[in-house]
Amino acid sequence: MIIPEHEAKILLSDWGIDVVPTERVDSIMNLKANADYFGFPVVLKLSSSRHSHKTEIGGVVLGLDSYEELEKAYVKLDNLKRDIDPSASIIIEPMIEPGVEFFLGIQRHENFGLVLSFGLGGIFLELVRDISFRLLPASWLDLAEMVEELRSWPKLKEGFRNLPPVDMDELLTFLDKIGDFATKQKGLEEMDLNPVSYVDGKFVVVDARIVKKE
């Protein structure tokens, strides 16, 4: 069972994990009020329990800068929703400033049990495939070794180009929290957090996909 994105984020947020704030919108009025609250630019997404790869189906519209663009995107997603999943929700989120983007995955593997994967996220995930793995539960030291296995870590910790240096302690705290969440969630089968953005010294989950056992 796919947990719709906005519900997945509530689960994570309840565990003390920072997520990009999300609101469900069900009307144009509601839409504008939320855009005013978050401030432009914003993002509109379709949050569905049937389709978890929303970018591929056109269910994500990024960088909306005005009421006009917002309304247009809303209508588009509303039509898409009617076509593919009437039970889906449309959600609005603020665009967050670009930071270092990570990928974090949880998988219940039939041979290895609960596995945590972590690496460079966003478009780099498939391009450079800089990922490392650990079985959960993992100790603080396991997590530290996991991070140090990343080929890009020596540069990330120093601050690559104009990106801020990534703080190891902050990162381990985040990974530890995620691991704790994953081991204690009943029926968790899969979780993709991609990207997780490192902004202002904090790790923030931008997109979340959780699959639980029926």
């Binding site: 959960l136 539960p137 100790s139 603080w140 030291l141 302690d169 381990l172 530890d176 691991g179 704790d180």
Partner: peptide, 16 residues
């Protein structure tokens, strides 16, 4: 010496 390593950084609880 695994359990002893890393104690110089902030002490943390072990997960699980």
């Amino acid at each position: 010496n695994r359990d002893g390593l890393g104690q110089n950084s902030t002490p943390r609880r072990l997960m699980g």
